[in-house]
Amino acid sequence: MGMYYYYRPGRWGRWLAVLGLVVFLVIVVFGGMLASNYKHLGTLLEVIHLVRTRYLEPVNATTLVDGAIRGLVKSLNDPYSVYLDPGEYARLQEQIRGSFGGLGILVGIKEDQLTVMRAYEGTPAYRKGIRQGDVIVRIDGRDARGMDLDTAVSLMRGPVGTEVKLTITRKGAPQPWDVNLVREEISVPTVEGRMIPGKGIGYISLTQFTEKTPDELESTITRLKKEGMRAVLLDLRNNPGGELRSAVKVAGYFIPRGPVVYIQYRSGREETYSSEGKNLNLPLVVLINRASASAAEILAGAVKDTGSGILVGEKTFGKGIVQTVYELDNSAALKLTTARYLTPARHDINKKGIVPDVVVEQEPQAQVDLQLERAIQILESRMARAA
Rank of each mutant, 00 (worst) to 15 (best):
Y89M: 12
D140F: 00
A61Q: 13
P124N: 06
E46R: 08
A90N: 02
E57N: 08
I109H: 01
V135S: 04
V116N: 05
R97E: 11
L25K: 03
R70A: 14
L34A: 09
Y126E: 12
D66A: 02
I105M: 14
Q113H: 08
S99E: 15
G67Y: 11
W12D: 13
V23W: 11
G20P: 10
A35Y: 10
Y83T: 01
I136V: 11
D78I: 09
L41C: 05
A17P: 01
V65F: 09
L76Q: 13
Q132H: 10
G102S: 06
D78Y: 09
L56I: 12
V137I: 15
V47W: 04
W12T: 10
G101N: 02
V28K: 08
A125E: 04
D78E: 07
S81P: 04
Y38Q: 14
A68R: 09
M33A: 15
G20K: 12
Y80D: 14
V107S: 00
V29A: 13
V18I: 14
Y55W: 10
V135M: 07
I27H: 10
L25P: 04
R52M: 14
M33I: 05
I109W: 01
D134W: 02
F24S: 13
A68Y: 05
V135K: 15
A125N: 07
E121M: 11
V18K: 11
L56M: 10
W15M: 15
T115W: 00
L92S: 02
R138I: 03
W12Q: 14
F24A: 15
Q113T: 08
L44W: 10
A125R: 08
D140E: 06
L45E: 04
G133Q: 05
I27L: 13
L44H: 02
N37A: 15
R52C: 01
E57R: 14
A35R: 15
Y120T: 03
H49C: 00
V23Q: 09
I27Y: 07
V73C: 03
R118C: 01
V26N: 09
V26Y: 12
A61H: 08
I48Y: 08
F24Y: 07
R91V: 12
I105Y: 07
L44F: 06
G104C: 01
W12Y: 09
V51T: 08
A144V: 04
L16S: 11
L64C: 02
E111Q: 13
A61M: 13
V51A: 05
R142S: 07
L64H: 01
P86N: 07
Q113V: 00
L64P: 03
R142F: 00
Y80N: 12
T63A: 12
R91D: 10
T53F: 01
L44E: 06
D66Q: 10
M117Q: 14
R8H: 07
P79V: 02
N37Y: 14
T123I: 03
L103E: 01
L103G: 00
E46P: 04
G71H: 07
D112E: 15
P58W: 03
M33G: 06
G98E: 05
F30V: 07
G104P: 04
L92E: 15
Q95E: 15
V51C: 04
L16E: 13
G101P: 02
N37T: 06
V23P: 05
G87Q: 15
A61L: 13
I105E: 07
R118K: 13
D140T: 02
G13S: 11
N37D: 06
G104Y: 02
P58V: 01
R127T: 06
T63S: 09
R70K: 15
G31A: 08
E88T: 09
Y7H: 11
A144W: 00
V59H: 02
E88H: 08
